[in-house]
């Protein structure tokens, strides 16, 4: 157990710091913060709406994550396969599960930091009005967990290919499907050939539906459970891919 924690800590540290060794971290942070500011104020008109409500701010997060999280996760395994360092990693006394967990945590921490760095928007609204702080906190909580789910999909997509481009596009495709799962474009595709219960099941998987409640200040255990299930499923699938890659 101790050994496991030490290993995860070591790989986590390496992965997290490597974001800052290259320009990835700085570019992603700047783009994320600028984009969320742009969408919140210019597209959603938060200032004009005259309401101290941050849902215009949070509602853009799934769409911004759709592109930014895969760009953060695309190198996690693809790069190792391409440069050959996966061979080094897999011959150290570490398990595939430890590697996947450590990389996931590093990427998740990084995206969480970018989310938290948007706090000036909250300060602005607090200065201008009186927002429901409970809703704000649950909104951030939901946003961070949503980012976690996207991250787990992104790192999975990275493990199936050497190409960062394919990894990025695969992650985006899976995430788009899950965002739009409960909505017409996707349900239409399924209702044309699947029975009702499948269509309903797919709708239940929508990221947006589960996220909306959290932005309104409602922390439903089922929504949190859903996201954590996605994370665990994806990380498990990822571990399997890494292990079978040796065969």
């Amino acid at each position: 157990m101790n050994r496991s924690l030490n290993v995860i800590k070591a790989i986590f540290k390496r992965e997290f710091l490597s974001y800052f060794n290259s320009s990835i971290a700085y570019v992603v942070l700047i783009i994320f913060i600028v984009m969320q500011g742009f969408f919140t104020f210019y597209v959603s008109g938060l200032y004009e709406s005259n309401q101290a409500d941050l849902s215009p701010f949070f509602s853009w997060h799934p769409w911004i994550f759709l592109f930014l999280v895969p760009s953060v996760t695309m190198k996690l395994f693809s790069d190792e396969k391409r440069t050959g360092t996966i061979e080094l990693l897999m011959t150290l006394p570490v398990t595939a599960a430890e590697i996947v967990t450590a990389k996931f945590l590093a990427a998740w921490l990084f995206t969480s930091i970018s989310i938290v760095l948007t706090f000036p928007v909250v300060l602005t609204v607090m200065y201008l009005g009186n927002p429901d702080m409970g809703a704000v906190i649950s909104g951030y909580f939901g946003s961070i967990i949503l980012a976690g789910a996207f991250t787990s999909i992104g790192i999975f997509a990275s493990s199936i290919t050497k190409s960062q481009v394919i990894s990025f596009l695969t992650a985006v495709c899976i995430c788009i499907f899950l965002i739009l799962a409960g909505h017409t474009p996707v349900t239409e595709v399924f209702s044309s050939f699947s029975p009702d219960w499948i269509v309903n099941l797919v709708s239940e998987m929508s990221f947006l539906t589960h996220f909306k409640a959290m932005t309104k200040g409602v922390l439903d255990f089922r929504d949190i459970f859903y996201y954590f299930s996605v994370i665990i499923f994806m990380l498990t699938a990822n571990t399997v891919i890494i292990n079978t890659g040796r065969n």
Binding site: R14, S18, N21, S22, T83, G84, T85, L88
Partner: peptide, 10 residues
């Protein structure tokens, strides 16, 4: 390893 893989950014 034959390719002596290393983490170049470290």
């Amino acid at each position: 390893s034959e390719t002596s893989p290393l983490y170049s950014d470290m």
